[in-house]
Design a binder for these strands. Sequence first.
RNA 1: GCGCGCGUAGCUCAGCGGUAGAGCACUACGUUGACAUCGUAGGGGUCACUGGUUCGAUCCCAGUCGUGCGCACCA
Length: 919
Amino acid sequence: MDKSYNPGAIEKRWYDYWEKGGWFSPQGGEKPYCIMLPPPNVTGTLHMGHAFQDTIMDILTRYHRMQGDNTLWQPGMDHAGIATQMVVERRLAGEGKHRRDMGREAFVDEVWKWKEESGGKITNQMRHLGASVDWGHSCFTMDEGLSEAVSKVFVSLHDEGLIYRGKRLVNWDPVLHTALSDLEVLSEEENGKLWHIRYPRRDGKGYMIVATTRPETMLGDVAVAVSPGDERYTDLLGAELELPLCDRYLPIIEDDYVDSEFGTGCVKITPAHDFNDYDIGKRHDLPIINILNDDATLNDSVPEAYRGLDRFAAREKIVEDLKAAGLLEKIEDHRLMIPRGDRSGAIVEPYLTDQWYVQIEPLAKPAIEAVENGQIRFVPENWSKTYFEWMHNIQDWCISRQLWWGHRIPAWYDNDGNIYVGLDEADARQRNKLADDLELKQDEDVLDTWFSSALWPFTTLGWPEQTKRLETFYPTSVLVTGFDIIFFWVARMIMMGLKFTGEVPFTEVYMHGLIRDSHGQKMSKSKGNVLDPLDLIHGIELEALVEKRTSGLMQPQMAPAIERVTRKDFPEGIPGFGTDAMRFTFASLATNGRDIRFELSRIEGYRNFCNKLWNATRYVLMQIEDETTTQPEAGDLSPIDNWILSRFERAVGEVRGHLDSYRFDLASQAIYELVWDEFCDWYLELSKPQLRHGDSATKNATRHTLLKVLESILRLLHPVMPYISEEIWQRIAPELDIKGETIMLQPYPEPGATDSEAEADIAWLKLMIQGVRRIRSELNIPPGKPLPLLLQGGQASDYARLQQFNDLFCALARIESIEILDDSSTKTTDDCAVSLVDKMKLLIPLAGLIDTAEEISRLKKQLQKEEIELKKSSGKLGNKNFVANAPEAVVTQERERLEAHQLKVDQLQEQITKMEALN
RNA sequence: GCGCGCGUAGCUCAGCGGUAGAGCACUACGUUGACAUCGUAGGGGUCACUGGUUCGAUCCCAGUCGUGCGCACCA
């Protein structure tokens, strides 16, 4: 074995080996266990969030597979309508082409080509991550089968009246020329203005002043509203206003919506371009005047001077014209919420169009109940509140998108505009008994990507066919996802799952946090702080990293700032840490928190952990090299063997408990401590004198325990660190006559019996060794210098243990001789450094070694600490209420503490007095 | 406005009604044949603040301050 761990050298071959072995497919077994991969966008690449999520899913998958469950991790990808169409359009733009020139069919062909090219990147990344997904059944949302399922669901919902088509205001993205659902619109506060405009009274008796943030919409005004009972305006009711710049008159109406306190207390009403106004218009039966084209230029219903102008150019001109006409009262600065499309970033317009909707309330109700009654459990539990909050206020879902890439809406129109829905055109004709020669034209629009994603848990398993896979794995076990798509995806899967299968799609939802950079910033290409998981695995030079982060930016002017930060954060670039170190890092970061900061120091630490394990293995292999190691008799096992075996059993219980409760941070910590703090720091060190000086049975037992514990640790670790565990296991398992092609199908450790006696023994031994080491270190006695030791005041148990562990103790503490001082001893201990283990004093003669003054100051420091603790204890016990009310065990424990501290204080004082007398 | 979080060691975070923990960073010493990607020892915290409940609060409750996120919003 290499002297240090080199992930690059080992990771490659194992993934191929596993995949060729076919072990990623379900292996059978009584209990099914299934996780659906949240399908990544086929045209993207995996970012740190994906890698984190995939690590968690792979841990769960491997954990359950090793337990013998019939385990499936179902992979696949999403066609990501808008995002993908944008990517391909941008690529075409680079070649000077536009989709409108090439036509729908040719464009969609282009997208498929790109999909083939790009999709491979993600599978490649997942392979490097070690993801044990069932590649053989990988799905794509636009696959034939999944697409048929989409049509079937659409038709079925339509038959039930739960899908309808309607003309109403939607969020319109004027750059992408499509409708968006509420969720795809992000509103943020921005600087704007509030224009106060004079609307002249028709009777010539002055003005009413209305305030607006979007003056251009005045061209679509149909009324001015005031608050009912607003005394300023009561005399105006029934009067009319002239709409400036237009040849129209507006009624004055009263509506509760108006807040008389805000602005001037009157509101211009533009039903075609504002959601609130739309409602008011309906209440008052007002006309609706749409003034926009679908690219947000002004249409022909506005005065000629404004036609064809972009909405913002129109705004400027209108303000100028109002000013010229003396109708602009004032302009104020104003903060307001600006809605933007989440993909294009364009300001979204409320726009009157025909769209398809899902009537959501009937679907939401059972979905709410499923979480209320515990059929679905959120982890952490709190997320159910967010879920309920949204579900209780849910709005109908706009599912049509004016795009070319996606599932075409299965609806056809005749020349009179009648709508016929069916699985395909023939089905539509048949269902509606249409003549074969009736001309039909399919709806041009496609469905929201999330419509097909909502069906993912059952369509990937074969639905609507009642396949064996569907029967076996549905409902799935757990959904692992980020809270940012709880509405987009989680809620919709629950609704659709219940509707079409009658069962929940999953019984648990584990919501993980969001990976941020080391400064707590969300990672994004535009901020230039993204990390490619592969770069952490393989490493990347600084220059390449800078190039990667600054190329292809939407805002190229950000490049210098990005470069500066990158050079500061990664002055040396990124060394390759390997997949296992990265996975362990992700596991250790998977706390219940929402934000997760990713720092290089963390992954570096876990790379070192890999090296530690690697070298522990080297040690074990060196020990067994020229020996035959056999299963020892129980009686041959020494207390240190029984100790490490017992510690292992405890760790197994902890790790399993943490994995079962999705606490990957605690699980990885438990493994880390077992490997490093117990196995390496203590057992390996204790095994050395054992293997050097023990009899042959002891040596054999020690060798066997080294192998056994290491082999078991590898199985415990495998779900988190699949590569290094496999690599080492392949070398260790044969030594124990364990047969098996791979560690991934070996049984996951189950907790066995612990040995509290051995644990107590070794705890004592550790205290003894540490007592001596502390004296050495604090008095600057070289670690290698052998020392004589005097013992005083110990109990029978101390001396019994001493006898048993004499050699180990002397070896690890570097003690050359031990003398026990009984009460009759006259030997002076005045000039000894002292360390306390329970009631026993460990004394090291200082003659010629160091200055007694140093020892005195060292002892005084310890004394101070003990006195503080003593005071705490005696304070508690002095409180009558504490003694009377606290549980018996707590009081007893406190009394013992008091006694122990008192003893130490006495002993330390005594020693200080003696030593001071010497000076 | 409504909802959900967070504030613990220099940094990043666990913990949680009964002596404050980890990793990294820091200090001192150290090449004893697994490992310097290391070892040994050590320093470092009125657990944001104020009240309350309790024998006992970092933990439970109320409030304050700071901070983050989601949803809905007044033209």
